[in-house]
């Protein structure tokens, strides 16, 4: 098994697993009636190849979350289609897991039961549940209730629940947004490791430029509302990446130039 530091070859990994290319074709999204509805996204065309880690950045209200929700199948596009692995997305599916800004755990169930519900067979395999909790560093918290967890812990449970369905695509809507700086950096590392170990295709919304450069193979920059794709920036730095290097700064400058 490859360890975290040897991952330069995302494309190599992607050859093995089943195809999970995400294609967004001519997608627009309007909320409300056609006449005076709010146009959230306008004519989006985007391709995220299998095994890639794409981040979407842009100002708040530019439709980042809406785009992610359409890929998840929680919302239909007004125009255009979203395809995953060649199939048109219609509704949610086990192949696409999602973590929201909030953990959204069921507060009336224990941590373990929340994770179990994330499995297609609802967790008949107890070891798999334990394994997932271990993966996110919470094997001792299976019997705890969500209210007993810190924000970072709850968000890790939400991640474990999303992974429990063995998705090929993981969608992340600013899941680290509410965390403190240190917890956030730790979870970024965990996320990279999970992405590499599980050969996932990830699309993440973030407003943190450094996070986007640190994690992703491509950065999708959206314009202000109605959101259009301003630019897709491939990030070809080897992992693990270092925020303090000159190359990192080049990307930072480019992004800041586009957003400010």
């Amino acid at each position: 098994m490859k360890n975290a530091s040897s991952i330069g070859g995302v494309r190599e990994i992607s050859q093995h697993g089943p195809k999970a290319d995400i294609e967004v074709q001519n997608v627009s999204k309007r909320f409300g009636s056609d006449a005076d509805g709010l146009l959230a996204l306008s004519n989006i065309n985007l391709c995220v190849p299998t095994g890639a880690f794409a981040t979407i950045i842009g100002q708040s209200g530019c439709g980042k979350t809406t785009l992610l929700r359409m890929i998840a199948g929680l919302e239909p596009p007004t125009y255009g289609v979203v395809k995953v692995g060649g199939q048109v997305v219609q509704g949610t599916s086990w192949e696409r897991g999602m973590v929201f800004q909030e953990p959204r755990l069921f507060p009336w169930f224990t941590v373990a039961r929340n994770v179990r519900l994330g499995m297609p067979d609802r967790g008949h395999n107890q070891e798999a549940v334990t394994g997932l909790l271990r993966l996110v560093g919470l094997e001792d918290f299976g019997t705890a209730f969500p209210r007993e967890l810190s924000g970072g812990m709850a968000q890790r449970v939400a991640l474990a629940r999303a992974l429990a369905g063995s998705p090929r695509v993981l969608l992340l809507d600013e899941p680290l947004g509410a965390l403190d700086a240190v917890t956030r950096m730790r979870m970024q590392q965990e996320l990279l490791k999970i992405w590499q170990d599980r050969q996932l295709t990830i699309v993440a919304v973030t407003h943190d430029l450094d996070e986007a450069i640190l994690l992703s193979t491509q950065i999708v920059v959206l314009s202000e509302r109605p959101g259009r794709i301003k630019k897709v920036i491939p990030v070809d730095l080897p992992y693990p990446r270092n925020r303090l290097t000159g190359e990192f700064n080049v990307f930072r400058q480019e992004l800041m130039g586009m957003l400010l």
């Binding site: 998840a72 199948g73 929680l74 509704g91 949610t92 599916s93 086990w94 696409r96 897991g97 999602m98 929201f100 909030e102 959204r104 069921f106 519900l117 994330g118 297609p120 629940r161 999303a162 369905g165």
Partner: peptide, 11 residues
């Protein structure tokens, strides 16, 4: 409604 979306994702 947040929980309903989770229910949708978890089929």
């Amino acid at each position: 409604s947040h929980y309903w979306e989770v229910a949708q994702l978890l089929q």
